[in-house]
Design a protein around this nucleic acid. Structure first.
Lengths: 103, 103
DNA sequence: TTGTTAGTTTGCAAAATGTCGAAGTATCAA
DNA sequence: TTGATACTTCGACATTTTGCAAACTAACAA
């Protein structure tokens, strides 16, 4: 199991501590579940996962970068559009840590 | 699986987003691992889990209440001392959230 | 009773965060 | 080339967060 340090972990939680940012991440997670379960990554256009957020484009842009800086997602450009994907390693690290049965 | 409440979950993440607060929680988690793995709770004196935090007593007091308000821990008084314990359900929620394999 | 320990409450200041409007860039379409 | 779409960057501003000092309370010891 890879070791996680407190500073890094707190950044992950910070990234998910804002309602809009969490919602954005959850939208992406919903889209990605099936692929993640199979051990694959899943690419998703940003436009498709921000429809239920009531904030402006600058804020969205800012939130995406926070999620990326925390290591939770990766992004690439595809033409005009931004493509997002969840980093499975980030999910795994934290899941392992908080699994009560992992002693 | 229970549906995720964004507002509630973001509060949990917010509680763990501060380095000192996370460290405090992790100290408690370290102490609690064995019991949690057996499905039990574990009581811990506050004094024992704050030794590596470089902040004053008022800040500690504040952080403990934040963790409690987020539903991550429970506290009781024992004489002069405060006793803390991790709420196992909170752990389960977090583990489930980050488990990519749970579809 | 007097002192000590363990934590709480209050009030305050510095720093970080979240959102926005305005302006800018890059891609693609007409 | 003109316009539209999909972001990004840059201040600015209000709100929240974090931590501290000072004063306070409750439990216990001497």
């Amino acid at each position: 199991m890879s070791k996680i340090d407190v500073a890094k972990m707190s950044k992950v939680f910070r990234a998910l501590s804002n309602k809009n940012r969490l919602q954005l991440f959850l939208n992406l997670l919903d889209e990605s579940r099936l692929d993640l379960a199979k051990g694959r990554t899943h690419d998703c256009f940003l436009t498709n996962i921000i429809s239920n957020l009531r904030i402006g484009a600058p804020s969205i842009s800012h939130h995406v970068r926070e999620l990326e800086a925390a290591g939770l997602i990766e992004t690439t450009k595809e033409g005009k559009q931004l493509v997002c994907s969840i980093r499975p390693e980030a999910m795994d690290d934290i899941a392992a840590f908080f699994s009560a049965r992992s002693v």
